[in-house]
Every structure is written in C-alpha cells, then in structure tokens.
Design a protein around this nucleic acid. Structure first.
Length: 292
DNA sequence: TCCCAGGTGTCGA
DNA sequence: TCGACACATGGG
C-alpha cells in the first residue's frame, strides 16, 4: 500500500496499517496486521465498543477489497499476449478503495491535472485544517473532513493552501450538494445502473468522465469503470504497444472489451505496471507495494 | 524555459 | 460534436 507518497489518512509501519475513522459520531483508531495463514487481525486502539469489531470488519473488507477472488481475472490476463506478464509481476494486488464517497469525490477533484506528490500535499493541508483527528501515543491520526466542516471553509484560506480557484469552487459545491441532500451515498448506490450512477456524478460541477469513473471504481466497487483519458493509463497502454496515441479511443475500448467484469482491475494493474516501470518520477521514493 | 501531471468547463466553429 | 484554451503549480 505504501506508494511512497505523503498519505495522511493512514500510517504504514512494521507491516501494519493504522487508521482513524468516524463510526457513528465517535472517532475510532484501529490497526490491521497480518497473522498466520494469510489472515488479517484488527486491533482497536481507541474508541472501542462491542459492536465496533463487526463494523470495522466490514469496513476493512470493503476498503481493501478482501472478498474478491482474483482467479478469473488472472485467467483473462493469461489469454492476453500484451498483459500476460502482469499476473506474475503483481499477483495478489487488490484495489485500495475509498469507502467514503465524499472523500473519494474530493480526492478525484484534488488530483485533477496536477502531479500526485502535489495532490497529496493539498490533501494533507485540507485534512489538517478541516478534518478531525485521534491522538494515540503521541501521534496524530487524521480523519477526512465531513461535508459540513468543509462547507464552512473560507475560499481565501484554501487559496493560501494553494488550491486553485476552480478546485475551491468544485470542492465547496460538492460539500454543499451533500449538505443540502442533493447528493448522498445511499441515493447514488440505489440507482439501478452504472450509467445512471455515472450520470448522477457527472451532474456535479467539477466531475467529468475521468473523475466519475474513478469514483465509481474506488467508492462504489464498479467492476467495469475505466477512467478514460487518464494520463497514466494512456502511458501504460503506449508502453505495452496497445496504442500509439491517446486519441486511439477505439483501440483502447477494443483492448478493454475482453476484460468485461474486470476492467477496473485491469486499470489498476496497468497503473501499477507504469509505476513499476519507474515512468512516474515524482514520487518521494520507491516504496514496497502490494495494493493500490 | 518547456512540458507534463491520476482534468474540467467554456467557447466558438 | 469537437478542438482550442484557460486554469494552477510543482518538478524534471
């Protein structure tokens, strides 16, 4: 999970992940570590209640996409000449999701058209100013802001934090849409088709096709959501010889078609392949990776 | 200095 | 419908 960026919403240390979360109205801090037989153990470090383990179990399962059996995906990868090597290289790599829809939408806006290092910087500034936190053994564990806390943000403050006027406008509009009830995770999930969910996301100012598909992939676990136009994705496809130019949309669609049911995962593996090749040079350092 | 980053909205043809 | 362009900043 450690991609070498300044991730502020969880901490990786000694093969464990520590994360703070708001459950109900209460902050909870938990740690995930691996135990024997490839099992994960969850320890509640603060905010324990008898019901919390069940809630955290479901959360972690969704966050790390633990219930996904990747065997059918590897079968499809094996049939593709261009992608056969991806199985061996990244076997066991699961999606890292963003279960919180508001966070996922905000993150897609923050990450638009800037390099990832800078995007992580902006996210940290936003979370430190408008989010909450849990203190534990001298360390601060940050929790992403709620729509309500971001609604009160002053544009001038966000400008000082190096958010562009456009991004400030988009973020405040999204916060407002959640606060007024125009937008909610429940409503979005209840829409009957992926197209309908995509259209709902596209209705938000600042959410284009890339962001909508990114959110569908990371927050709603859509299996066939491809962030078309993504710079990294295009670069990976060029590297594999699938396309020569990003405008070859039909070739991209034809390449993804046999992976129906696994197109989100194919995107993940292509991204990781790109990073694995060292084509993205703006990372702090090359980190040990297992999931994206 | 120039170009590219996990893009989007707007405008004009 | 499509291409051009502005937006905004860091890093190679």
């Amino acid at each position: 999970m450690d991609r070498g960026y300044d991730e502020c919403l969880y901490t990786i240390e000694n093969s464990t992940i520590t994360k703070a979360l708001t459950v109900g109205d209460k902050p909870v801090l938990f740690r995930i570590s691996s135990v024997r037989h490839s099992k994960l153990q969850i320890d509640v470090l603060s905010g324990y209640s008898p019901k919390i383990i069940t809630v955290l179990g479901l959360y972690v399962s969704k966050w790390l996409d633990l219930d996904r059996d990747l065997a059918p995906f590897y079968k499809k990868l094996g049939r593709s000449n261009a992608c056969a090597e991806l199985t061996e290289k990244y076997k066991g790599l699961h999606l890292i999701n963003i279960p919180n829809l508001f966070e996922s939408i905000c993150w897609s806006i923050i990450g638009q058209q800037i390099n990832l290092s800078f995007a992580y910087k902006l996210k940290r500034r936003l979370v430190e100013k408008y989010g909450t936190s849990v203190q534990h053994q001298g360390k601060t564990h940050l929790i992403f802001p709620t729509p309500k806390s971001l609604q009160d943000a002053v544009p001038a403050d966000l400008k000082i934090m190096q958010f562009s006027k456009q991004k400030i406008n988009y973020l405040l509009t999204v916060a407002n849409a959640f606060n007024t009830g125009q937008f909610s995770a429940d409503h979005l999930e209840q829409l009957p088709t992926m197209k309908a969910r995509q259209a709902k996301l596209l209705s938000l100012k600042g959410i284009g096709i890339w962001s909508a598909n990114y959110v569908l992939m990371k927050s709603l676990n859509e299996p066939d959501s491809i962030p078309f136009g993504d710079a990294g994705l295009n670069k990976a496809l060029k590297r594999l010889g699938i396309i020569k130019d990003r405008k070859e949309v039909q070739k991209i669609e034809a390449f993804f078609r046999p992976f129906a049911g696994w197109q989100s995962y194919l995107t993940l593996y292509l991204w990781r392949h790109l990073y694995g090749q060292g084509l993205v040079s703006n990372k702090k350092h090359e980190g040990q990776t297992s999931r994206q």
